[in-house]
Design a protein around this nucleic acid. Structure first.
Lengths: 210, 210
DNA sequence: TCCGGTAGGTGACGAAGGTCACAATAAGCA
DNA sequence: TGCTTATTGTGACCTTCGTCACCTACCGGA
């Protein structure tokens, strides 16, 4: 795993802020598939992604998990900001999809820096903005689109984020993330294969043309 | 319409900021059912609600409108902040449901105040937070719940926001806002009436017990 | 090589919800 | 009062999607 430094990942931050992050932030590591946070958990810190890759899910009471968006190195979890600040339970679940390192910023620093560093308050706002857009786009899909379009969008996102046409995943997992069922996903994938959009393998999907 | 002053609506703002808003903001009035912003429009300002009531919708390409949440006096449109700052087209539509007055803050002031007034940057972040939560709850409903639950939630929200058990609306409009069809809504409402949850009238619904 | 486990394929069926056609009311107005 | 229009009610039918049952293909280890 390549080590990325704070200055590299957050070049817009003031030198002083970068130093504070390095000194006061607590680095935590997660293995692939490990959960960074669980639904119902309380937050006492917000987290910046250093390296790896994280997926953010919404869960309902029955444990269904619904994939919302990816978090990449250099990004922060907007939800952890919301929850930390409001002393509320987390309403989402975050899972590492690669081995991942994050740096945790305690709540009191987060607040303090808001007044102290312009680049920090700008970063926080930009983070909200970006996630806001993602959520809107998610709403679009589930409100207006059918499962076929949503599946295609899901694969496209995966392809772009992982920068590969070879997706290692099984149908059941996709079904979980789209809050659907394995059979439905299998059928739709088969149809897409017939249209020449992709090729199906065991435990893997090869994207041809979406 | 009662006139609410800036200090009354935004008591947390510094005196100086309140004065700037009064001096530099541009007050605009909208009649009931008038659109405050349309999908595809560019923003050059953000808007604070002074009085009245605003509904925020997401629209798709075919003109279907999907109700997301209410904005009340003292609140701001988070989306207008996003869009204004990113020079992006609006992805949402806002409609006055009562006669409404807003005060428009030009983009450059919005940015300037971020550094100048702590209460302003706090306000902006709180606004994002609140809308973020609304969106998450919206996603929950459309991802995990059936139309029956969503209809009930919709009526509950209306009841709470308007502080009345007498809702003046027809079935077609509800269907539009939930991205469903009139017949489905009529059937579900009828069922709810049979359960004693409400009473149906022409152009109106009387809520008994939700 | 055999066997068990996992992944994927398929048909049958049902529920939810969208669509169409048309009937029944009620409100408004000439 | 009678006509017109907007609103609501209803049955038939279709599509999408979830579920169940069961089958097939493949992989990996004993």
């Amino acid at each position: 795993m390549e080590i990325s430094t704070i200055p590299q990942l957050f070049p817009a931050f003031e030198k002083e802020l970068q130093r504070e992050i390095e000194e006061q932030g607590e680095i935590r590591s997660f293995k692939t598939d490990e959960q960074l946070m669980r639904t119902g958990q309380y937050f006492r810190s917000t987290m910046l992604i250093l390296n790896g890759l994280v997926k953010i899910y919404r869960e309902d009471d029955d444990g269904n998990e619904f994939f919302m968006y990816y978090l990449q190195p250099g990004q922060a979890c907007a939800l952890s900001m919301v929850c930390a600040a409001e002393h509320k339970r987390s309403a989402i679940m975050a899972k590492a999809v690669k081995d991942t390192e994050i740096i945790a910023i305690p709540l009191h620093l987060m607040e303090e820096w808001m007044g102290k560093y312009r680049s920090w308050s700008y970063f926080v706002i930009t983070t909200y903005r970006a996630r806001f857009e993602e959520l809107l786009s998610t709403i679009d899909h589930i409100a207006f689109r059918g499962m076929d379009e949503r599946l295609e969008f899901y694969l496209k996102k995966h392809q772009e984020t992982m920068r590969t046409n070879h997706i290692t995943i099984n149908h059941q997992e996709i079904a979980n993330e789209l809050n659907s069922s394995r059979e439905v996903i299998s059928r739709l994938l088969k149809k897409m294969e017939q249209f020449g959009k992709l090729k199906l393998h065991r435990n893997a999907i090869e994207i041809i043309q979406l």
